[in-house]
Design a protein around this nucleic acid. Sequence first.
DNA 1: AATTCCATTATTTTCGAAAATTACTATTGC
DNA 2: GCAATAGTAATTTTCGAAAATAATGGAATT
Lengths: 214, 214
Amino acid sequence: MTLAEKAYVSLRKDIVEGCFAPESPLRLADLSERYGMGFSPLREALNRLQAERLVTAESLRGFRVSARSLAEFEDALHARLLVETEALRLAIARGDDGWEASIVAALYALRLQARRQGGDVDELKARHHAFHRSLLVACGSDWLMDFFERLYAATERYRIPALIAAGPQKRDIDAEHGAIADAVLARDTRRAEELLRDHYLRTAVTIRSGLAPA
Amino acid sequence: MTLAEKAYVSLRKDIVEGCFAPESPLRLADLSERYGMGFSPLREALNRLQAERLVTAESLRGFRVSARSLAEFEDALHARLLVETEALRLAIARGDDGWEASIVAALYALRLQARRQGGDVDELKARHHAFHRSLLVACGSDWLMDFFERLYAATERYRIPALIAAGPQKRDIDAEHGAIADAVLARDTRRAEELLRDHYLRTAVTIRSGLAPA
DNA sequence: AATTCCATTATTTTCGAAAATTACTATTGC
DNA sequence: GCAATAGTAATTTTCGAAAATAATGGAATT
């Protein structure tokens, strides 16, 4: 893996996880020290992230972490529902046995990590992402999967801080995931779409309440 | 405008217009000579285009123009219909007088250029793009507009060569545009969606017939 | 003849410095 | 006191060379 690729992965993770505050400038000298590389690979990574809307660039004034706002979250949520319900419909129509098995496996792995007390939070996030991706991956559309990845990252920037702010959840998220998986495996398109939609709308409620005061 | 931005604009245009054959390698030395700049701004532009799926990169083997295939075209078309019908619905629901006026203006400008014999083809393409964008811009969703721009570029890579290959059109594209604009201005969501859909599906027929032999 | 190995060449990737631009600070003039 | 300004520092952007890696071609070996 080249340095530019490493820079892309690290920066993307750190931005999504909120290590850099929204709108804070991403100075090359700082990044160079933080990640231990020269300017060139960092600039390449920043350009990729710019195309993904995770960072913004202004001519001759460098790069900043993209702003967060309620409006942008609502927009991303709306786009996400559009993209994911369509991808889910296609996946249920097209998915084969291997796809079904991969959903079961992803859900199982997610639950293992969720129940492990004091487990690695990064690993939990990765498995959560993997589960949601597994539901859609059989849609067979590179474009929809690309949009899914973008929107997942965009909304994750809101979800993580909101979860921390909201404290203990009243929701049984594990059960929600289970119900979605059941509906998908039963090829019940309408029910799966509805459950996935509700799942995201419930998360949105938490995020909105955490975002309103800020 | 920085050199990297110029490189991005030029490269994007040249790739969409097919100046570089699909899958052909984009060698830095060649690009450096073609665009009259060093490697750094070119690499930054290529990284942005990679995030947009117009170029592909392989570690330590540089960049290539993304492949074209019937499957990818069908995928992009499908995603485009999903995104644009939703954006159109929102725009019709939300657009104000200024938006309506901008559609009338864009259509008028497009027709002027289309009827000008021997006019600048680049200008015609730009106005065609501007007209289609004007229909959607009132949707108020940055994400959907972002996806629109991506998918427009992706499908334009197929449309231009197909138009050349197909020769004189039997379609009255001008009338199709007019009908779409009329339906949108009448706020007839269902009809507007249907006409836009048909418009793209007709273009798709031409593209498929031009792509099948290749 | 086919294959492996090595040397050479071509190309990408990265760095460090130079150039260009912006941001900051202190000073001047009113 | 405050705006304009010149000078300085900080920062981004770009270049050219160096380092790293891949591709090529030819000789030696099986």
